[in-house]
Amino acid sequence: MDFINAIILLLNFTVLPALTYGSQLALGAIFVTLIYGVLRFANFATGDMMSFGTMFAVLLTYYFQSLGINFGILPTALLTIPFAVFFMIFYMLTMDKFVFSYYRIKKSPPVQLAMVSVGVMFITQAIIRIVIGPSDRRFLDGEKFILKAKEFKEITGLNEGLTIKSTQILTIFITIIVVSIMFWFLNKTKTGKSMRAYSDNEDLALLSGIDPKKIVLITWTIAGILATIGGILYGLDKSYRPFVYFNNMLPIFAAAIVGGIGKPYGAFLGGYVIAFAEIFLTYAYKKFFIYILPDSLEPSSLVQLLSTDYKFAISFSILVIVLLFRPSGIFEGKKI
């Protein structure tokens, strides 16, 4: 019984939150990696672009709510996804046309494009703050819990409760769907293959008759979908605050590089690696050990490797270690 309690405890406080957070990071990391792989620059506007898409979802949710439209037990924000994605892609393509394309055609070094993306970051941040302001916003409605701790205890008779938030299941579920569709697209369709070919060897792709303009268009489209959905899921699960989104860029970068930048599959796994590391290393295992160890060995301290203040620092340390020892990422094999 104690053993099951210990497992439930870990599930509730580490595995489930880590899977949720990991999914959110994974979507962002694939976004980073696609832009890096196909358009060949580190996009420092990543966090703010995700924030931009989410902003539309938040505004539209408020609008829908004012019209009395809702999605039953599901959050209204899910209904806004198509519209938010549309605005996001439109914004990205506008930025590409007026900013990025010039440097791409000139074949500027990636560093210059990265610097340009810093400019885009400033502008995006300004637009977001002018439109919606910097404050914290919650836009989750519908049913908040799938399973409450109390109910779980009543059903199973265990000491430990398991709480499943609807946003956790939604995040994991939607991420699996979006990522599966994306991998199907990249691996099975002609356009997807040509995109990978372009990412692999641009000159040869041109010699094969692949139209770079189309590739760029599709890349931003996929990026827009990933960025918006990732941002919305994060916002539903926690809350929407522009500054936090800017900061999320950092673990997202870490996930993308840990997975081997330019490899979507690696970025997907990288998101979970970062999330699990952050949560497992900062979790206080005291209660866990009380359950599984005999009374005589019970720990007196929190049994916490690092304080939760260092959550971010962990992902960065992982990143630094990976950069030093395996700059191509920790996953072997296929690039895309």
């Binding site: 990978r196 070919a197 990412s199 692999d200 060897n201 000159d203 040869l204 792709a205 895309i336």
Partner: peptide
């Protein structure tokens, strides 16, 4: 040189 898509 670079006449194939080596990741595909």
């Amino acid at each position: 040189t670079k006449n194939v898509f080596s990741d595909l």
